[in-house]
Design a protein around this nucleic acid. Structure first.
Lengths: 261, 261
DNA sequence: AAAGTTTTTTGATGCATATCAGGTTTATCA
DNA sequence: TGATAAACCTGATATGCATCAAAAAACTTT
């Protein structure tokens, strides 16, 4: 089916979902807002025509004025390194907020590009701040979302500085799986919206290495892959390889006091 | 001089700096607050006894209730990897806020430990939120600080996934230099508050590699090192090696439209 | 000041992953 | 539908950095 038609068939701006009825509301900004407040939030949100694959939401250096919530599809964030190479810093799935790192310098520090046909909610930041003035719950939700992203970033740093290729790919897959699950999709069967190249770029690995690890994982019956379709066959072992997913790792308490001084 | 005495000699809780008179106020939370507002902020801040080297501000997993501003000294954040290894995720210099990544799950996701005798301002988060209700400037300052940390984290990811050992160390040194400069210290001569081991851990390198790169940098007259004392002799070349510091990198605009679709 | 401990440095070796090169499959488009 | 390009996989080789080892220097402690 040609992508172009999707717009006409599936997307009716007049009938577009409101926050109240949106299936993602429990993951997105509206969490813990009451109906009235959600309605207020709804009023400042613009639903734009979906982006086609490869289209940009914004470019690195553009003036920051909106944050975006992914409604369907997926977005990658990337920056250009000094030698002109692309460096992917994030992938965003539905319900996730894009662009929060632009608040400080008032320009987006990275570009955002659709990996597939992608619908977003556009949230003018100035109006969000206005609204936050009156809605304490919205305020803390924004903080929580940013705080979570900070935490995820640290996890990513740990991946990049301590994990080997297999652990990186395993972490990547289990992480995606968890996120799909929370969004109501199967945690065991999903379609990767990004290429091997993009996975490698994100994970700090060469494409070839990603490809090889995928093959090795297949040979050990951890996963079954067909192009971008992934089946996780042995989640337990994959999670162990990943080094326990994001869930709380227990901290060895023994040395807590001993270590002081 | 024994560390213990510092407390008695240098730190008088009764005479402690207020935000209004604090030399760091232009870098820290009070930015863009007026005098009255700073005073309000001041009231919720507790200045604790300075931490001695090696003491913890909080441990990974502790209940999140405060964020901290470093007043003097320095703090490292670190987490334990699954195999019990330490992974340093950040170093904090005076005026920087510690603990913001705990907002979301209400426990600190990493530990915070003093690298040297360190004074902090303790800011109860609940009260900060209270205050933010009335002070829009404070609100956006918190957002800006978190947004900046997000941006820095992405920079760190790029370092970890694309830069080689020399580029990492060069980036580390120029970054420190910039931060010292903003705080009124010399950007060319400073004392590293952390060990080679900690630098390596943070940069995803072995100690030995850090040591070797330091030696190489000395041999090429980029820096002069004596233990933890560092002199930057050739900032230009060091910056080039680092791959241009954090400042805005120009984005090649040619392909902006061409890339779409 | 001496003894012990930790940190730093330097050298030799090994390995995980990058890079290069080729072939194959899958997508894109006329 | 076939042509062309892009993505993916696999093998061979190269290399940057980790690891191992051991000495030197810098701190601690008594």
């Amino acid at each position: 089916m040609p992508k172009g038609q999707l717009k006409g068939i599936c997307f009716h701006p007049s009938k577009e979902t409101k926050c109240v009825t949106c299936s993602l509301s429990s993951l997105c900004l509206p969490i813990s807002l009451n109906f009235e407040d959600i309605d207020q939030l709804d009023k400042i949100i613009k639903r734009r025509q979906p982006l086609k694959k490869g289209e940009h939401l914004f470019h690195q250096g553009d003036r920051f004025d909106c944050v975006y919530a992914v409604r369907s599809g997926s977005i990658k964030n990337y920056a250009m390194t000094n030698d002109g190479e692309e460096q992917i810093t994030n992938f965003h799935l539905p319900s996730e907020l894009v662009g929060l790192d632009g608040i400080d310098c008032e320009t987006y520090p990275v570009s955002a590009k659709a990996l597939e046909t992608t619908a977003v909610c556009e949230i003018p930041f100035a109006r969000l701040e206005e609204l936050a003035k009156e809605l304490p719950e919205l305020r803390s939700q924004v903080l929580r979302i940013m705080s979570r992203e900070l935490r995820d970033d640290k996890q990513m740093m740990m991946l990049l500085s301590k994990k080997n290729a297999e652990q990186r790919v395993a972490t990547f897959l289990t992480n995606l799986s968890t996120r799909f699950k929370r969004r109501g999709y199967s945690p065991f069967t999903f379609r990767l919206p990004m290429s091997r190249n993009e996975i490698g770029n994100y994970l700090g690995l060469a494409v070839e290495t990603v490809s090889r690890v995928f093959t090795r994982f297949q040979n050990s019956d951890l996963i079954a892959v067909n192009g971008k379709e992934v089946h996780i066959l042995n989640m337990d072992d994959l999670s162990i390889l990943a080094g326990l997913p994001d869930q709380e790792q227990k901290i060895p308490n023994e040395t807590k006091i001993a270590n002081e001084g």
